[in-house]
């Protein structure tokens, strides 16, 4: 059962990274326009070359 001393911190750490990523997404206003973002991904505008 000693493996738990590694696995539990690891699982908490990974979960924590996910939580921080969520905070970052929230802070940078990525939840302001869910409908628009869903549509934006389907645009073909910059498929061939990156946005200048």
């Amino acid at each position: 059962m000693e493996i738990l001393t590694i696995l539990i911190p690891v699982s908490l750490l990974l979960g924590g990274i996910g939580l921080l990523a969520f905070f970052w997404a929230l802070k940078t206003k990525q939840f302001e326009d869910p409908q628009g973002d869903a549509a934006r991904i389907l645009k073909t505008d910059y498929d061939d070359h990156p946005k200048p």
Partner: peptide, 12 residues
């Protein structure tokens, strides 16, 4: 945004 943040924390 505040509610969403709390929701995220609670979910985690």
């Amino acid at each position: 945004r505040e509610l969403l943040m709390r929701l995220g924390v609670a979910g985690f």
